[in-house]
Design a protein around this nucleic acid. Structure first.
Lengths: 206, 206
DNA sequence: GTCTATATTTTGATAGAC
DNA sequence: GTCTATCAAAATATAGAC
């Protein structure tokens, strides 16, 4: 059932995750698939195209999860919770691909880099919009939405770097802890809204 | 004043940060220093020793900053604030080195990896101790101190990946936003302490 | 689709002159 | 301390048989 193209992708994901993109050779990927390295070039133009394919698929699926989560939520807080939950869960459940997608951008050609960064920017923009709406509504502490979005996104993204599927806590348990931590951090009413509103409520001026 | 050994280290930090450890060659480092690649080997045993030196120095300085910050604070909250502030500020101000230290561990020999991981574990342990004390005292929401420590540490560490020294916000401004976000996330009294205390107050069982 | 064989380049590292 | 010269190994990628 599994095509060789699929097998190559899976082996590459495994090796790129374990050793890194630059430290992984075409020969190793071929060995993992039980074929010779020349055969790889029948399925992919080269190592970089393999990396690009992995990243593109990952970003597409990540975005789809966000859209689905947001569509099912009807107020600012539940939308934010859905966004955080999707982001952290996706990064734990598809750990290898998400880790590659966030750490191997330097392996892409300029054209492919531009394409993946565009996908990432679109995703971030939606995320920042949810945060910005919450700040405008006073549900979240007024702060710099862009920096806060980076904080939340990278926080979850880094989960792919330390998570162990056979570890003490399940992905669900971690997602619940993270969701609580992030939402508390966002909430207004605390003593830590320590900057004047007119200075920091400026979500997207680059 | 600057010795060649120092110059080599600086050039290597620059290139490892920009291109990654595996994608950087000894020739490139030599070119950046204005010498031939063979001369590098007079100062360092090889590329890996260069990486190890960078990482070791970075971890030592990071630890020194934490110790100094904690020594100047006298209660749980201010100790936590000092720990977070040191961590985020260090990762922004010494962006290149900290980025390398957190993303190029796979480039180390097993012996050197063990050494750096030991330094990192010691650092994490101190950090987790501050969090654990806050939870015991009821100052922080009772939660899994280990996971929360990973959340906070990776959150700040990732700052080295997106920070731009010439960007809209200074390292100080970002540090203040992060400190507020993290402390709010930690505080008890919110509605998000959603797990039984006896289950989650279990800081260090691996 | 996969193979063998090979071209080309580059790598990390060493020897020995100066 | 830095150089020239060189080595051996490994890399990506291609040509052409089957």
């Amino acid at each position: 059932m599994a095509s060789m193209k699929h097998t190559i992708t899976d082996v590459a994901i495994d090796l790129f995750f374990k050793k890194g993109y630059f430290a992984t050779s075409i020969s190793e990927i071929a060995r993992g698939c039980g074929i010779r390295k020349a055969s790889i070039y029948y399925h992919f133009a080269g190592k970089e195209e393999l990396l690009f394919t992995i990243m593109q698929t990952t970003m597409k699926d990540l975005m789809a999860g966000l859209q689905a989560g947001l569509a099912a939520a009807d107020n600012t807080e539940s939308r934010m919770r859905a966004a955080v939950r999707n982001h952290i869960r996706f990064h734990l459940e598809r750990q290898k691909e998400t880790f590659i997608a966030s750490s191997e951008l330097r392996g892409l050609t300029p054209e492919h880099l531009e394409s993946v960064v565009a996908q990432r920017d679109e995703y971030e923009h939606i995320f920042q919009n949810v945060i910005g709406k919450g700040m405008e509504a006073g549900v979240f502490a007024c702060n710099d939405a862009k920096v806060i979005s980076y904080a939340i996104l990278t926080l979850c993204t880094a989960g792919a770097a330390w998570y162990r599927p056979d570890g003490r806590l399940s992905a669900d348990a971690i997602a619940e802890i993270y969701e609580g931590f992030v939402l508390r951090g966002l909430k207004s009413g605390g003593r830590d809204t320590n900057r004047p509103a007119e200075l920091v409520c400026d979500p997207w001026p680059i």
